[in-house]
Design a protein around this nucleic acid. Structure first.
Lengths: 340, 340
DNA sequence: AAAATATGCTTAAACGTTTAAGTAAACAAA
DNA sequence: TTTGTTTACTTAAACGTTTAAGCATATTTT
């Protein structure tokens, strides 16, 4: 790569000191009482040489990198990709750059990424934490690193986070299945300790128990992230067999729903006639499904913006107390659960 | 954020010079003839204080940032998100960090991003260029910035790139529609100057003209990226009307196919009985479609790996001539075009 | 015993920037 | 005329690292 033009080069050409050039190019001419003639000359030379400030040197001096680190749980999931996109946009709007990494739901990988990003002197972190990241989060708190969690959080750890009202959203979604006349409502979720998923489970359970006409036998089936396909098939099989087979399923995430629907297709079941479906999160696949899937829409744009705002606040004021943002979702009702 | 531990802190505690600490912690003890005792002591203190090297200072000194910039055309498209993911993985494997941005198919935004990334002293760039980026690419060449294009390239500009054989892939896809007995094959593509899309168009056209039994009337319809939904509806309408309505459609990308299929669903057409479908790229929506969509599978993993490899080669050797990598695709045959 | 070499460390400069402090000249106020 | 102030610039240190060069002291070779 061609050697970059530095302040020194400009100073040499203008026959002045490096400092003077710096003052001019950072618009501190008045404060530094630079002569108008000279300021003009310096700017002209800078333009001629196509000077681009060296951000690294600037960072070293200032101690700030104007960079935020983003660790998403899985960049190949459009939900997270869209969060990444809004965060990147919003950061840019605030003159911050984003370095990102995907932990692929692996706590060790997440830990490595945190280290990499901190070594790069990011000014703060936005994290979609994975299961088992509690220690890492605590460590960040101890180090006083500005950070904000998004989508997920740990109820036992006080830290800024952006989340949605998972409990209510799930409660509403299941209530809608009840309202549309379904009697045997199953749920497929992850086998996980992650709080947001468990809140969704709680929403499901409580919605059912608040309607005492419904069967109390648990229709909750869990799949392992690592064995998604098999576990979901098993879950669906279990829901459909027995004396009282399910007439509706609530999926806790888009990935679960997509795998589930693939299998439901294979089984030749019709949605919603044979089985109604509601899912969390959106997906193009839901739109394209012959019976467009009713889903809980998360306000990704708002979440991303909030995350950046909260983080930048923390960066500005290190002693700011943790800020907890909870955003409402919207149940987008379509064909997959029949008519009310 | 708490003040980070620096070499100075360690040196102070050990009662030695900063240089000595640096030698030890960068494993140059032998070369610098550091005493074993002292090396041990320094390492112990470093561990105790949890020393993390300041990457920014290191970069300033070395002139390298061990960072590569990635600009994708649209991070919310899973195809690009997956490319981003593989690139990030592969970069990490080579001890590089990725800074990314999404140009959202906007050349101006891409230009801004290039500047931001270069100011951050990235060692090189991986770009999925957008329409109208030719000048930017030429500029990068002139500045001798190591970079590699992926997915798309400009035939008029000699630059390293990773691409697939768009022409042959499209030719094969259309040939498959012919083999499966379709007589009126339409195509929906973007109205664009981008070479890779036009190669796909050429593949379509030549596949048709090589089979002289087929109608020569052009079934090629173009949609604007900015008016995707309307234009695709119009395109599908046009393909279906007239004396010889289409019995098959070839979509040039996943986004086109998804919008197209949504409309085909709305029209109540059955795939493949009423209309056979083949698309470029994969999508979860294709899997979930009641008639799983036959598609041209791009080897994303290989592409991402190749991009990183070629870029790192360029970074190592600035005078390396442009390297052009072309990778084969695979036609994944499923139900959406009927049986052979 | 003198010369050469080895050992274990320090000094100092450099990367490109920012910014407080300093200085010399011109001008104004006493 | 001296003193003070303004103007327009320079000097120098700092950020955290790396690394060539230097310098004692100790050890080996002649």
């Amino acid at each position: 790569m061609k050697k970059k033009v530095s302040l020194k080069d400009i100073a040499q050409e203008a026959g002045v000191s490096v400092a003077l050039v710096s003052y001019v190019l950072t618009n501190k001419e008045e404060k530094a009482r630079v002569g108008q003639e000279m300021a003009k000359k310096i700017r002209k030379i800078a333009r001629k040489l196509n000077y681009q400030p060296n951000h690294i040197a600037r960072s070293l001096k200032s101690g700030r990198s104007d960079t935020i680190g983003l660790i998403v749980a899985d960049i190949s999931n459009p939900f997270f990709a869209n969060i990444a996109r809004t965060i990147e946009d919003e950061a840019k709007r605030n003159n911050y750059t984003v370095i990102f990494g995907s932990s692929d739901e692996n706590a060790d990988k997440a830990g490595d990424l945190i280290n990499v990003l901190l070594n790069r002197q990011v000014d703060g972190l936005i994290l979609i934490p994975t299961e088992g990241s509690e220690q890492q989060i605590k460590q960040l708190k101890k180090q006083n690193v500005p950070f904000v969690l998004i989508d997920r959080y740990f109820p036992g750890i006080s830290a800024s986070h952006i989340c949605i009202n998972n409990y209510e959203s799930a409660y509403n979604a299941v209530s809608h299945l009840i309202k549309t006349g379904h009697k045997q409502i199953g749920m497929v979720a992850y086998k996980t300790a992650l709080h947001h998923i468990n809140e969704r489970k709680r929403g499901y359970t409580e919605a059912l128990s608040d309607h005492d006409k419904l069967s109390k036998t648990s229709g909750m089936k869990l799949a392992r992230y690592s064995h998604l396909k098999e576990d979901i098939r098993l879950a669906v099989d279990q829901l459909l067999q027995g004396r009282k087979p399910a007439d509706a399923v609530f999926f806790a995430t888009n990935s679960l729903a997509i795998e589930g629907l693939k299998y439901i297709n294979e089984l030749g079941l019709r949605v919603p006639e044979d089985l109604a479906v509601v899912s969390f999160d959106e997906s193009e696949a839901f739109d394209l499904f012959y019976s467009p899937v009713t889903y809980v829409r998360q306000p990704i744009l708002d979440m991303g913006k909030a995350a950046v705002r909260v983080l930048l606040d923390q960066i500005k004021d290190a002693d700011k107390p943790a800020e907890l943002v909870c955003i409402d979702t919207e149940l987008v009702i379509r064909k997959s659960c029949g008519n009310p």
